[in-house]
């Protein structure tokens, strides 16, 4: 029942938003076609403008992953994570999540397949996936789009929030499903 409601919201949301915006605009006598294309032009420019920043950050992260440095970091951190009750298998997920969206998605799928979708490990990885974001991608794209190079406290604050998200995912999953 709950799941149906959730799926329903997901299915209705975008069509409903488009319907409301266009109809409301038309009723308010906005030239909807001209307005749309003016905005769309801006969208096109932004997508092109972020390419250099995206290449820079994804290449750096790609090098870190492909070299095995991420695995090394994971094995160095494993004593700490077992102390806080995070299964060793979930640690790669926690490390990957802020760096690479597709990488993290791959790890979640793998953990779910290997340990079962109802297992604690499978659930913990799923909660982590749902409750955190690809921090470095967002940082690179958002700041890159407006050519900000001095990010001040953005990185430490975002990483602190990631840490809080991952820790709470571990604890909450254990409490609810453990």
């Amino acid at each position: 029942m709950f799941q149906n409601v959730v799926n329903g919201i997901s299915s209705i949301a975008i069509p409903l938003i488009i319907f409301s915006i266009v109809l409301y605009g038309y009723v308010k006598k906005v030239k909807v076609y001209e307005s749309f294309t003016t905005g769309a032009k801006e969208g096109f420019e932004v997508a092109i403008r972020i390419i250099p920043y995206l290449v820079a950050i994804l290449v750096a992260i790609g090098a870190f992953r492909a070299s095995g440095a991420l695995d090394l970091l994971t094995s160095l951190l494993s004593p700490v994570t077992s102390f806080i009750g995070m299964p060793a298998e979930v640690l790669p997920m926690a490390m990957m999540r802020p760096l690479s969206g597709s990488g993290a998605l791959g790890i979640v799928s793998e953990l779910i397949n290997n340990f079962g979708v109802e297992s604690l490990i499978g659930r913990m990885a799923a909660v982590m996936e749902g409750s955190t974001e690809t921090t470095f991608y967002v940082l690179a794209v958002y700041f890159g789009s407006i050519s900000i190079t001095k990010s001040r406290h953005a990185v430490p604050a975002a990483l602190l929030a990631d840490l809080a998200g991952i820790l709470s995912a571990v604890i909450i999953t254990r409490v609810v499903f453990g």
């Binding site: 409301s20 409301y24 905005g39 096109f44």
Partner: peptide, 24 residues
Amino acid sequence: LAMGLIGIMALWLGLMRIAEDSGL
């Protein structure tokens, strides 16, 4: 990734502009 964003960026910023112009 950036190429994949072009269409969807254009769509949402287009809708956003309508919503702005209409006062929504």
